[in-house]
């Protein structure tokens, strides 16, 4: 569905003159899933009841209707539906041409309101501290995760991760002494290990993401920094196959020792000796 939506958005961007200006606006607003939650509840309800008994894609398309709430709503709805059908056809044609865009970044941009996040200065300060101590390349990127309560998120280079982890824990101003969560994610084009850290002293939190390549994934172990990382790194190794260099005892923890493969990888195929 996201691919489709992106296609739709792209079409509106490229041919805005193809439709009456006012209608285009409402159409766009209805299609942007990220804006949908900003609508008042009653309108959402209207959308839902109209979507009942139709297929999924119709439910989404019928959200086009939510703007004209006056007496002409029914007419407009029919028109919008016809238009949506046409758009869907065009979209299908576009998809067939293989015109898919890597729309992750653009979708994010759309979602973000223009005003800067209240956490932005904090994040900038942290990035400066880490870059100051470990060099420019240690922090690959930094962002504010808005839907997640404006959580500052750092992308740390895996080559510098162990030093960065020590710094995160030991620096006076950072003092992230508590490992809240450690998760591995297979993004298909790369792998990522996500750390959620918390400082009991300063009561602030940060998300840290460390990228690694998909073939032979490997990042430094941080068990010597946070003792609680031990089993978690074993779990990530077990389920995703990411090796943690320097881990004292990197064995499988949840799956049986003789299991073949790492189940949470997206390309995992169950191995069955009988077949």
């Amino acid at each position: 569905m996201t691919e489709k939506d992106r296609e739709k958005e792209k079409q509106h961007e490229t041919h805005p003159g193809g439709e009456p200006a006012g209608k285009t606006e409402s159409h766009k607003g209805g299609n942007d899933r990220f804006l949908r939650d900003n609508q008042p509840d009653e309108q959402k309800g209207a959308v839902q009841s109209q979507g009942k008994g139709e297929t999924d894609s119709d439910t989404v398309d019928s959200s086009d209707v939510k703007q004209p709430a006056d007496s002409a709503a029914k007419k407009a709805a029919a028109a919008a539906k016809a238009k949506a059908a046409a758009a869907a056809k065009a979209k299908a044609a576009g998809a067939a041409k293989g015109g898919s865009i890597p729309g992750r970044a653009s979708a994010k941009k759309k979602k973000e309101p223009p005003e800067p996040s209240p956490k932005q200065p904090v994040l900038d300060r942290w990035v400066r501290i880490i870059r100051g101590a470990l060099g420019e390349e240690a922090v690959e990127d930094a962002m504010i995760n808005r839907p997640n309560g404006h959580l500052p998120t750092l992308f740390i280079s895996k080559d510098r991760w162990l030093e960065a982890a020590r710094l995160l824990k030991e620096h006076e101003e950072l003092a992230f002494d508590y490992l809240q969560n450690l998760a591995g994610v297979d993004y298909e084009e790369h792998m990522e290990v996500v750390f959620h850290l918390f400082s009991m002293r300063h009561r602030h939190a940060v998300g840290v993401r460390v990228k690694t390549e998909r073939e032979n994934p490997e990042i430094p172990s941080v068990t010597c920094v946070w003792a609680g990382a031990d089993w978690n790194e074993r779990e990530v190794y077990d389920l995703l196959g990411i090796r943690f260099t320097g881990h004292p005892d990197l064995r499988r923890i949840l799956m049986p020792d003789d299991w073949v493969g790492h189940p949470l990888r997206k390309d995992y195929e169950p191995f069955d000796e009988g077949v």
């Binding site: 899933r33 990220f34 509840d41 309800g45 959308v47 994010k108 997640n148 969560n181 998300g207």
Partner: peptide
């Protein structure tokens, strides 16, 4: 609440936490 019939969660990532009887459930 009024939610769509088919729940689709917008693109993104989030870590949420709560106090379960055993501790921080996230």
């Amino acid at each position: 609440a009024k939610v769509p019939r088919v729940i689709r969660v917008p693109e993104g990532e989030a870590y949420v936490q709560m106090e379960s009887p055993r501790g921080e459930l996230g």
